[in-house]
């Protein structure tokens, strides 16, 4: 038997390689836990029952899944045109800030207020990426650095707002804004309608990319910008649009977190969702629909992290496990192109 490379892999090949990678990563993690003296079977059973076996677990899963879905979608959309938006974290914050400002200062019926907050969240996220976007589209400035650095600016801005102008004096240890009077209605107890909105956005973006002329142009520009220009496509305009959409989606994630889950603006609200979104997009192979299972996987892992911590497992172990999954997925992606064939 010999290993051979094949030129292309179908959708099923990719799915099989992804699933196998995750299984291998969890297997390695399980062996490591077993070596540390944990009863892996029991831990796994508890993680499953805590995640899926009761209402709290399912709600938590949904509350983790939906922001990861959106930040993952944001990163995936950018990847389709060949851009690395590392700034999901900052755009998440920016969307949260904008939505909070609207929520605290606009008086309107609930649905109107929530719609305005969503628009503000999108606009906030888009505004936060606007400068890196223009710098990339018009002066070819590397967007990886610019979007990344703005994350720190956004985090500091939230810190400033929450300890300064927007601080709620009734909060003691936690620096946070006042409570926002508009809350997204529940879908399932603490799981709010933001989850459904997130799923719908994934569908809309998938449709846009796969079935619209705009999406075709984005895909061509992502594969070869020069060819897109040659084909008469407005490449810079598409770059800007994709950037703004990407930032806006991360901003909506921030808005949903503020309006649905936390109800205040505060430092650390992003929970690293922006960075984890990059991982989601990578696992999904930048496919919008692939973002659904990829973000679910990460949500399960993060949720498992909380369960494991109550058993005294360090949260770093969970972080290592997520890294292992990504690593295995990257290896699996390469291995998917190899086939075992009988020699001659």
């Amino acid at each position: 038997m010999r290993l051979r490379r094949v030129a292309s892999v179908g959708v099923w090949g990719i799915i099989v390689s992804r699933v196998a990678s995750v299984v291998v990563a969890l297997g390695i993690g399980g062996v490591a836990f077993a070596l540390c003296g944990y009863d892996v079977g029991r831990l796994a059973g508890d993680v499953v029952s805590a995640s899926f076996g009761n209402l709290f677990g399912i709600e938590d899963l949904g509350l983790l899944w939906s922001p990861l879905m959106l930040t993952g979608l944001a990163a995936a959309v950018a990847l389709r045109i060949g851009l690395w938006n590392i700034g999901g974290e900052g755009q998440f914050y920016a969307g949260a800030i904008a939505a909070t400002l609207v929520g605290l200062h606009v008086q309107a019926p609930l649905w109107v207020a929530l719609a305005l907050m969503a628009v503000a969240g999108f606009a906030g996220g888009a505004a936060w990426i606007a400068v890196p976007a223009a710098a990339r589209a018009f002066w070819a400035v590397d967007e990886i650095i610019t979007t990344l650095l703005l994350n720190f600016v956004a985090a500091l801005l939230v810190g400033y707002l929450c300890t300064g102008p927007m601080r709620d004096p009734h909060q003691a240890v936690t620096a946070a804004s006042a409570h926002i009077p508009y809350e997204i209605p529940p879908l399932l107890d603490d799981l709010h309608w933001g989850f459904a909105v997130s799923v719908a956005l994934v569908g809309v973006v998938a449709l846009l990319l796969g079935r619209s002329v705009w999406g075709y142009e984005v895909r061509v520009a992502g594969s070869n910008g020069r060819a897109a220009f040659y084909a008469g496509m407005p490449v810079r305009v598409r770059l800007m649009q994709v950037f703004l959409l990407s930032g806006g989606l991360a901003g909506v994630a921030g808005m949903l977190e503020v309006a649905g889950t936390v109800h205040r603006l505060q430092g650390g609200i992003s929970n690293n969702f922006g960075y984890l979104g990059i991982m989601v997009a990578a696992l999904a192979g930048a496919s919008p629909l692939g973002v659904l299972p990829a973000s679910l996987l990460l949500a399960v892992l993060l949720n498992a992290g909380i369960v494991l911590q109550s058993y005294g497992v360090s949260n770093y172990a969970v972080l290592a496990l997520t890294g292992l999954v990504l690593f295995c997925a990257a290896v699996g992606e390469r291995l998917a192109y190899l086939r075992l064939r009988p020699a001659a």
């Binding site: 805590a50 009761n54 709290f56 677990g57 709600e59 938590d60 509350l63 983790l64 240890v173 936690t174 946070a176 603490d190 977190e257 889950t261 936390v262 505060q266 430092g267 650390g268 609200i269 992003s270 929970n271 949720n303 909380i306 369960v307 911590q309 109550s310 949260n315």
Partner: peptide, 19 residues
């Protein structure tokens, strides 16, 4: 549980205590 951040992760951790 250590190092519970001031974020929705805190809520999740408290729910886990109840669960």
């Amino acid at each position: 549980v250590e190092s519970i951040p001031y974020s929705a992760d805190a809520t999740r951790t408290f729910r886990q205590f109840v669960a």
